[in-house]
C-alpha cells in the first residue's frame, strides 16, 4: 500500500494513436531557436527526471491529440492509458495594462524589435525591453507558470503537461508572438500600440482624401459589344523569358528550411523543380524547331 502511495508514478503504457501531433525533433533538444529553448527551460526544473523523460517520449510518439489557444492560455488533449484523453491547461500570468504600456514604450524606441518580430524572430535584446518595465517575458518565478491536468497523477506538472509543453515549444520556434499572447496581448494589439506610440511623437500629416479603389471593377459584358472579339490592348512585344532560373530553386531559397521537415527541403524537392525546368524548356525549344521544319 504505502509502496504504491509513495511512488504513484507507474509505468503505464498509453494507448497508441495515429492522430496525434508528433514532435518534430526525434532526439536531443526540442527547440531550434534560443527563445523556444528558454521556454522549455522554464518547465524542466519543475519535474523529476522520470516524468520529463516520459513527457518527451509522449511528445515524440504523438500522444498529444490537440492543442488550442484561448483567452486564458493553452488547452490540450493528451492520449494516456485511459480511453478518454486527458485535458491539459497551461497558462502564464498576464501582465497588467500599466506593465504592458511600459513594455511598449521600450519596444517603440528601436525599430529593430518590431522588425525582427514581424520577420519571425525574437530579438536578442527583448529582455531589455521587458526589464525596463520591471517584468520578464519568460516565466521566471514558479507561480508565473500555471499548469493543470485531468490525469490521476497528483504531481503537477505531470508527464502529459510535459508533453504538451514540448510540443508548444516547437510552436514557439515558428511564432514568437505566442509568448506575448500568453502574457496577455496579441499581435495586432501590440502593433497598434506601437504604431500609436510612433505617431504620437510626430505631427499627423493630412492624408490624401481622394477615394481610391483597390481593384477596378470589370466593365459589364453588355457594354463591350463593339470590341467583343478583340484584344483590349495589343500584346505585341509582350516580354517573355522562358529559360532556367538565374539561381536554382529560387522559391525554396527564399523560404528557407521549413520546421516541419527533418531532411533538407532543397534536397527533397530539388529533383521535382529541376524536372520542371527541363520539361518546360524541351517543350519550348521543340516548339521553335517544329515551326521551321513545317515549311
Amino acid at each position: 500500500m504505502s509502496y504504491r502511495y509513495y511512488n504513484f508514478f507507474e509505468r503505464t503504457t498509453p494507448i497508441q494513436t495515429d492522430e496525434g501531433i508528433k514532435a518534430r525533433s526525434k532526439r536531443g533538444d526540442f527547440a531550434k531557436n534560443w527563445w523556444a529553448a528558454r521556454w522549455i527551460k522554464a518547465l524542466e526544473p519543475l519535474l523529476n527526471a522520470g516524468r520529463l523523460t516520459r513527457g518527451r517520449s509522449y511528445a515524440r510518439r504523438g500522444q498529444v491529440l490537440e492543442i488550442k489557444e484561448n483567452a486564458n492560455g493553452i488547452s490540450a488533449k493528451v492520449q494516456g492509458s485511459q480511453r478518454t484523453p486527458y485535458k491539459v491547461t497551461i497558462s502564464l500570468q498576464h501582465l497588467s495594462d500599466k506593465q504592458w504600456e511600459k513594455v511598449i514604450d521600450a519596444l517603440a524606441e528601436r525599430a529593430i524589435f518590431t522588425a525582427q518580430l514581424l520577420a519571425g524572430e525574437m530579438p536578442q535584446e527583448i529582455e531589455e525591453a521587458f526589464d525596463a518595465a520591471g517584468v520578464t517575458l519568460f516565466p521566471g518565478k514558479r507561480n508565473e507558470l500555471m499548469t493543470d491536468c485531468s490525469c490521476p497523477d497528483p504531481a503537477n506538472p505531470c508527464k502529459h503537461i510535459a508533453a504538451t509543453h514540448y510540443i508548444l515549444g516547437e510552436q514557439f520556434d515558428e511564432d514568437p508572438f505566442l509568448l506575448f499572447r500568453l502574457r496577455g496581448r496579441d499581435q495586432d494589439a501590440i502593433l497598434d500600440a506601437l504604431r500609436a506610440k510612433r505617431a504620437a511623437t510626430m505631427p499627423a500629416l493630412a492624408e490624401e482624401t481622394v477615394a481610391y479603389v483597390t481593384e477596378e471593377p470589370a466593365t459589364p459584358l453588355a457594354e463591350t459589344l463593339d470590341r467583343f472579339w478583340t484584344m483590349g490592348e495589343s500584346l505585341a512585344g509582350f516580354p517573355l523569358q522562358i529559360k532556367a532560373p538565374v539561381t536554382a530553386l529560387p522559391i525554396l531559397k527564399r523560404l528557407g528550411q521549413p520546421s516541419f521537415l527533418e531532411e533538407s527541403v532543397e534536397q527533397l524537392l530539388g529533383p521535382a523543380y529541376r524536372a520542371m525546368t527541363e520539361k518546360a524548356l524541351a517543350l519550348y525549344d521543340g516548339a521553335g524547331t517544329d515551326h521551321e521544319e513545317q515549311f
Binding site: L235, K243, P245, P250, I251, Y273, T277, L281
Partner: peptide
Amino acid sequence: RFWEMVTLFALEIVAQQKVL
C-alpha cells in the same frame, strides 16, 4: 491568341521554378 500568351507566361513561371 490571348490564351496562347497566357500559357507562355505560365511556361516561363514553371521553367523559372517560380512555383510554390
